[in-house]
Design a protein around this nucleic acid. Structure first.
Lengths: 111, 111
DNA sequence: GCTTTCGTCAACCGTTCGGTTGAATATGAT
DNA sequence: ATCATATTCAACCGAACGGTTGACGAAAGC
């Protein structure tokens, strides 16, 4: 359990990996497409994806020659709960977040 | 902001440091007392405390020859809010989401 | 004063991390 | 069959990590 937190927080400590997770929020992606926006070798991205997979934050499924990466947000729950234990701050500052979301959904309907 | 998250998550990725934070949940503590339950040199604990301080997760104040360590749970907000973003499964515009987070956390964004 | 306690600093050590390159392995397309 | 695409593997690199030890400075105690 402690090892889970180790792996989760360590995985989240890298900006490239956080960016990857954010990209996967939109949709599942192939490894090559994940790598595309980064100025870094495919092998490096492959390693980052392996770390995210080991932490359980994503899953990878090979279909044909393409390996699809899928966000597994449930893996964040343990870490989130741990942090809530320190919650002198509000669990979620949801007021602002919801206002943000409403503005978002109202203005940008392009997708 | 990205650097803040880097530092926060990296600081949280070590079980010793998480244990220290948990101890400080109870009360402020002197460095020596923090080190006491660990089977590790004082210097090592001192380094861990420096990392936690750099991440803003604790503050240290020297009174006399004793340096007191105090939990600063607000520093967890940035990380917590970031993770909450993965709990909401609306198709969010992520650029706007980033801007939202920056506005939310603007107070602690070091220059 | 001298000594003890508190804490950091500096140098070192082995391991892990984040990246590179080049070769290797599958699978798909022609 | 051949060629191209998708992805990983293996070896390597420099930097950072987590720990140790020993010396050091600053504040308290006797």
């Amino acid at each position: 359990m402690s090892e889970t937190l180790d792996a989760t927080f360590a995985a989240l400590a890298d900006p490239t990996r956080r960016a990857i997770l954010t990209m996967l929020l939109e949709d599942d992606m192939a490894v090559t497409d994940v790598a595309d926006p980064f100025e870094m070798s495919l092998a490096a991205i492959s390693k980052h994806l392996a770390i995210l997979t080991r932490a359980g934050l994503i899953s990878q499924e090979k279909r044909g020659r393409v390996k699809w990466c899928k966000l597994e947000p449930d893996a964040l729950r343990a870490a989130s709960v741990w942090m809530q234990g320190f919650g002198q701050f509000e669990p979620v500052n949801l007021d602002a977040f919801e206002r943000f979301l409403e503005g978002e959904l109202g203005s940008d309907t392009a997708t």
